[in-house]
């Protein structure tokens, strides 16, 4: 047993006298021994693969790799666009951030936004998906209706809702007053207790359709046999929902939760259009705060430090997402 491989190696790669020099025989292209060639030869043979990768690699090395390294560099400098002097300041930016009360507030606001908008749009999405999974005639029509806000550009949704929340002429106040639910018009976006809930409500409207479609795909992947078996065991509608549907949707739920958290932590457009971070910083989220420092106060160093704080929060969830997508690829796609 031991001898065979040795013999084969010797016959295959036996040195051959060639033009006065000893050299190994060159395997032809596509021969089974191609992978035994030297590294430069292999690189040369597959050169077209590198050419194919070139544009992508170039863009990535500039706008992601170099940018990331540059971002780290910025956090250690007092880097203002308007001042020529950009001194090294060590950990000052990080120290400032920890003691910055507005930063702490922005983190809390962001968590408030994610914590409210993600579960709400998931729950509404699940409810709609469960109803639309029933054999209804107008199913397609309803599905389109609930999905329309998802395809609407975010800026448009934000503008539209800004009007709906208008204190004097907005539809919310008009109908709430008509129904005698409120006695005085509410100043939705300028009320410090109502501004964030108002932004959350708009975001739920905009995001529910996505949860619904993903849940629908998840529901359709549940084998019908499970329901049959549960029915034979005497399970009612609610029990089937509780013990079959919801457990089977667990991967879908997890996917939506992680994706929802990742995207909601980066909330910016709604804030920019609807509230400008106000009133009294009640809707200043992390990304909006970073935007202020970079493009209103022009301190790129401190703004980069703020961006890294967000990165750190996102990293936990992104790592989770990558892990899960490897473990349960089928479930993630369904």
């Amino acid at each position: 047993m031991m001898a065979q491989p040795v013999v084969r190696t010797e016959t295959d790669a036996a040195p051959v006298k060639n033009g006065g020099r000893w050299s190994r025989p060159r395997p032809g292209p596509g021969s089974p021994h191609a992978n035994r060639r030297s590294l430069p030869a292999r690189i040369w043979k597959e050169r077209s693969a590198y050419v194919f990768l070139m544009p992508g690699m170039l863009i990535f090395s500039v706008f992601t790799l170099a940018a990331l390294i540059f971002a780290v560099y910025l956090t250690f400098h007092r880097w203002s666009i308007i001042e020529p002097d950009k001194p090294f300041v060590g950990l000052t930016n990080y120290r400032d951030m920890i003691h910055d009360e507005r930063f702490t507030e922005s983190v809390l606001n962001t968590i408030y936004f994610s914590g409210a908008s993600v579960p709400l749009s998931m729950a509404t999405g699940l409810l709609l998906a469960l109803l639309l999974n029933l054999p209804l005639r107008l199913r397609g029509l309803f599905r389109t209706a609930f999905y329309l806000p998802v395809v609407t550009p975010f800026v448009v949704s934000a503008i539209l809702w800004k009007w709906l929340y208008n204190g004097d002429y907005g539809l919310f106040n008009y109908y709430l007053l008509q129904a005698h639910i409120i006695d005085d018009p509410l100043l939705w976006l300028s009320d410090k207790n109502l501004a964030m809930p108002a932004v959350v409500l708009m975001s739920v409207w905009a995001g529910t359709g996505f949860s619904m479609v993903v849940y629908l795909a998840g529901l359709q992947a549940i084998p019908q046999e499970l329901y049959e078996a549960a029915r034979i065991d005497g399970a009612g509608v609610w029990q089937r929902l509780r013990y079959v549907t919801i457990p089977m949707l667990r991967p879908t739920t997890l996917f939506l939760l992680v994706m929802g958290i990742i995207s909601s932590l980066q909330v910016f457009t709604q804030i920019f259009v609807m509230t400008n971070g106000g009133p009294v910083n009640k809707t200043t989220t992390m990304v909006y705060y970073m935007y202020l420092w970079a493009f209103k106060y022009f301190d790129m160093g401190y703004a980069s430090t703020l961006a890294f704080a967000l990165f750190l929060m996102l990293l936990v969830f992104t790592a989770l997402q990558l892990r899960l997508s490897r473990q349960e690829p089928g479930a993630w796609a369904a």
């Binding site: 706008f63 992601t64 990331l68 540059f70 961006a307």
Partner: peptide, 14 residues
């Protein structure tokens, strides 16, 4: 894994 927000500021300068 890198969110767009982290590379936003350096990319502006790049």
């Amino acid at each position: 894994m890198v969110p767009g927000q982290v590379t936003l500021i350096p990319n502006y300068l790049i």
